[in-house]
Design a binder for these strands. Sequence first.
DNA 1: CCATATTAGTTTAATATTAAACTAATTAAT
DNA 2: ATTAATTAGTTTAATATTAAACTAATATGG
Lengths: 152, 152
Amino acid sequence: MGTKHRFDTGEARALKTYVKLMRATESVTARAHRQLSSFGLTISQFGVLEALYHLGPMSQSEIGQKILRSSGNMTMVIDNLEKRKLVRRERNRADRRFFIIHLTDDGKKLISSIFPSHAAEIARALDVLTPAEQQTLGRLCKKLGLEARPEA
Amino acid sequence: MGTKHRFDTGEARALKTYVKLMRATESVTARAHRQLSSFGLTISQFGVLEALYHLGPMSQSEIGQKILRSSGNMTMVIDNLEKRKLVRRERNRADRRFFIIHLTDDGKKLISSIFPSHAAEIARALDVLTPAEQQTLGRLCKKLGLEARPEA
DNA sequence: CCATATTAGTTTAATATTAAACTAATTAAT
DNA sequence: ATTAATTAGTTTAATATTAAACTAATATGG
């Protein structure tokens, strides 16, 4: 004997919000992806280069935490960047468990030339929102992102 | 003769908003992923089953458009669902270029049992926001998602 | 000093994802 | 009737992504 399951209004609202969040993100991400692929980069490769560009050399696991990727994935993305001579791994002498990842000169040149275009593309994508709306979106996403993140 | 590139405040604000959007999405998505993997599904597999569950049988390209995936990816995700006997492909007789994808009985059972847990998980993730904030987030994301989507 | 626990990164297996080139089928134009 | 254009889906190659198991190195506790 089953009754027809109805979601309460809280669940229905949350699901609708979630779907809109996913679609918005997918659209902006697809747009960023198209632009970056014209520079021969994937979104994750760009994320690594950008993190190193803005924050300086750091370990693989630190980069993974910053751009929210697993350690196995970081190995492959950094392997590919290393292969293209955009980054280099330097074993830490004090603790040989980890590497410090550095941008190479070529890597610095590439990311510093790409970054302004990327910034402009993101600004164009978000131009549909007013400055106040962008602030509100950012505030709500920050609130959402902090809570949803599982704290290890 | 080079001047140091500074982003105007519009670009800086857009980038900050974008980073927060990506992080929020990543957090909620990671949470949903963990839950779905305990049911043996990936997010894209779930997306296909959910689309068929709520909207009825449809072609592969229609499903791809609804869950924002490429046709090549849809082939593989549906191949895997077919292999597990959760969906079946039926060639359209009127136009043999396309298939109609149906949920199987097992597929219906699985998605109908999972969906309430998924809805509850999403509601928990979004519980950090008030109802009014969820409405606002949804409205802003809808605005963003419509504009950023490239119209073919 | 030795055994155990923890950490950084790698490997494995599976799945996801894209763009581009392709095949098969249908539609449109001549 | 024939050719060209378009559409649905597949295949290819490359890269991304995860969880889990693994190795190597360091830290901790007895």
